[in-house]
């Protein structure tokens, strides 16, 4: 990749590392009721400028995965028991806390679902934004304030200079989420993890926030991990989708591939559950049954109790992530059948 390297070394150059590669990530919560297997061997990667959507129903382990990547897991009860999280090739799980801390906020940043509770109620938004510059860059108070105003302008908060001293509760929900985004972008991170950034907002504001995120991503070239329930949003902004079920990624594919023909029964069910304008009057299909207990996971494929494609071996053999095509995987023994069904 580099012409500066001597010829002889060329063969030894490893393939460029992904911006972020999560390998076999396993997280459990040791609770009084038992061990909750929240994340069970998750693999995915993210490159620059790419948007990966993580999709899945409530409790499937999306937020826990994000927290593990950020290093903000509640420990105890949460523990990462296996796996690696490589940022540009370096496994951050092996870093000392002091070095890990420098990845947080500066390289990988995160925004949360509920911006009101995610912002500290007793400090002004300007103070909280400026704190990034003060702590990480050693900025003075006045520099920090100026940086805060610039950040607020960057996420298009009107009258930023006047509002810099206001407190979180004095902003609307949409504005608060903009402030969270501004805070996450303060140090120009390479990766932004957005955990259901629009769920708490009303529909028109949702669209504005998604537009803002997409615009900022274009500007900065950061990789974006977008955790969401909203398949409509995904279709608009994501490049790839990882579908999670019971702490596993069951399908991983480019957006148009999965929308055209899902390769896992669970993705198929999810897609069938979106109300479509072109199917007015048609019934809304929901996936029957309930998600399994993460304390007592079913043997074999976790999805088998709810699956229409189930055969005997599904209750016995855990499906690996089969390669459907290059850059596409499905954790279903009968993925070909699922693909063929449409």
């Amino acid at each position: 990749m580099s012409t500066l390297l001597p010829q002889a070394d060329r063969a030894d150059v490893p393939p460029a590392a992904h911006l972020l590669a999560v390998e076999d990530l396993t997280v459990e919560f040791r609770t009084r009721r038992g061990v909750v297997h929240a994340v069970n061997g998750v693999d995915f990667h993210l490159d620059e400028r790419e948007t990966l959507a993580i999709l899945g129903e409530s409790g499937s382990g999306k937020s826990v995965t994000a927290q593990a990547i950020m290093g903000i897991l509640d420990t105890p009860p949460g523990f990462i028991t296996r796996g690696a999280i490589r940022y540009r090739g370096t496994d951050v799980l092996t870093l000392r806390e002091e070095d890990r801390r420098k990845v947080r906020g500066q390289k990988i940043a995160m925004i949360f679902q509920d911006a009101l509770s995610a912002l500290n109620p007793v400090f002004s938004v300007g103070w909280q934004l400026g704190e990034m510059a003060r702590v990480h860059r050693g900025a003075s108070r006045s520099e920090a304030k100026r940086a805060a105003i610039e950040l607020m302008e960057r996420v298009r908060i009107p009258n930023a200079a006047q509002r810099v001293g206001a407190y979180p509760h004095e902003f609307s929900g949409g504005m608060r989420q903009r402030i969270m985004i501004a805070m996450a972008l303060a140090l120009n991170p390479d990766i932004l993890i957005a955990d259901e950034p629009t769920t708490a907002l009303d529909v028109t504001v949702q669209a504005q926030i998604m537009q803002l995120l997409a615009g900022l991503q274009d500007e900065t070239g950061m990789g974006l991990i977008l955790i969401t329930h909203d398949l409509g949003v995904v279709a608009d902004v994501a490049d790839r989708i990882a579908v999670m079920y019971a702490g596993k990624i069951v399908e991983n594919a480019r957006v148009h591939d999965i929308y055209a023909r899902p390769a896992h029964p669970y993705s198929e069910g999810l897609l069938a559950s979106i109300p479509r304008v072109d199917q007015r009057g048609g019934k809304l299909e929901a996936i029957r049954g309930a998600p399994p207990s993460l304390i007592d996971l079913p043997p074999g494929c976790s999805f088998h109790p709810r699956c229409d494609y189930r055969r005997d071996n599904c209750t016995r053999d855990v499906p690996p992530l089969y390669e459907v095509s290059a850059d596409r995987g499905s954790a279903c023994h009968y993925w070909q059948e699922v693909l063929g069904a449409q």
């Binding site: 950020m70 290093g71 903000i72 801390r101 420098k102 990845v103 947080r104 906020g105 500066q106 940043a109 995160m110 949360f112 509920d114 509770s117 995610a118 912002l119 500290n120 109620p121 704190e131 990034m132 702590v135 990480h136 969270m180 805070m183």
Partner: peptide, 11 residues
């Protein structure tokens, strides 16, 4: 949540 945010800010 805001304490989690503070940690996520790398403080």
């Amino acid at each position: 949540d805001y304490v989690r945010t503070a940690t996520a800010k790398g403080l």
